[in-house]
């Protein structure tokens, strides 16, 4: 009897004792609290006015006013919805429909057959010469993207290999290649501190800034070898 009791007590204890110390527990267990989750505190004002009204007006009028005030305070405050950045979900250049030129038709299979290609992609007008597997640190934080997002890169000015280069005018036809990148994360530079000081004045202002950059990896670069249907 006493042994069974002891075992039951131990069973109760074990899940508690097996848990790692609190600092090893994931942060998810702590309920996250954001700035926009706290309800706005509104202190009831106009108490002096209400008293004055109560003196002058009849008791019933004061009661009605109080009820109205309570209803006013109980109305739910409209929560400001966070503005989501709009990400492009369709090709940024209009898809060309005409037939490709004869030189592209004849030479693109040769370019595609060569090993190792580079591509000059343009993001917001900035060129990046990359090959497959490269990791690119963009000089800005791309708003709205999260790690794991697959981006299709469709503005390219040059695709080449060791012997051949396909040059766009200014951009290459988007049907000739497929380039994809995976967002791998965000990187931050070390904190910069800029000291501002005026002459003959001891006061110094430290201006801190820390920029964030989006990292992405070029996961795929395919060049179309068969352009007979274009």
């Amino acid at each position: 009897m006493s042994r069974a009791l002891l075992r039951s007590v131990l069973e109760l204890r074990t899940p508690v004792t097996r848990l790692p110390p609190s600092f090893l527990l994931p942060m998810r267990s702590i309920p996250a609290r954001f700035f926009n989750q706290t309800t706005q505190i509104i202190e009831p004002a106009q108490t002096a006015d209400a008293d004055a009204d109560a003196i002058h007006a009849t008791l019933t009028a004061a009661r009605q006013q109080l009820v109205q005030q309570q209803q006013q305070y109980q109305q739910p405050q409209p929560q400001p919805t966070p503005k989501k950045p709009r990400l492009p979900t369709s090709p940024s250049l209009p898809t060309p429909t005409g037939p490709v030129s004869e030189s592209v038709r004849s030479l693109l299979p040769i370019l595609a057959a060569q090993p190792g290609h580079y591509i000059t992609i343009h993001i917001h007008g900035q060129p990046y010469l990359v090959t497959e597997g490269d990791s690119v640190r963009l000089p800005f934080k791309m708003p709205g993207v999260e790690p794991g997002d697959v981006l299709r890169l469709d503005c390219a000015t040059a695709i080449g290999s060791r012997d051949f280069t396909l040059q766009g005018a200014p951009y290459i036809d988007g049907r000739l290649f497929e380039c994809r990148a995976i967002v791998t994360g965000t990187e931050a530079e070390p904190m910069r501190v800029l000291i501002k000081k005026k002459r003959r004045c001891r006061r110094k202002t430290h201006i801190r800034s820390k920029h964030k950059y989006t990292i992405m990896r070029i996961s795929e670069l395919k060049i179309r070898s068969d352009v007979s249907d274009l």
């Binding site: 998810r28 990400l87 492009p88 940024s92 993001i123 917001h124 794991g148 697959v150 299709r152 503005c155």
Partner: peptide
């Protein structure tokens, strides 16, 4: 300039397809 990119798949969708409940 044209943005030069568009989002083909969101990371959450990729994780859901793999069956992993990613963080």
């Amino acid at each position: 300039f044209a943005p030069g990119f568009w989002v083909e798949k969101r990371g959450k969708e990729v994780m859901a397809r793999r069956g992993g409940g990613g963080r």
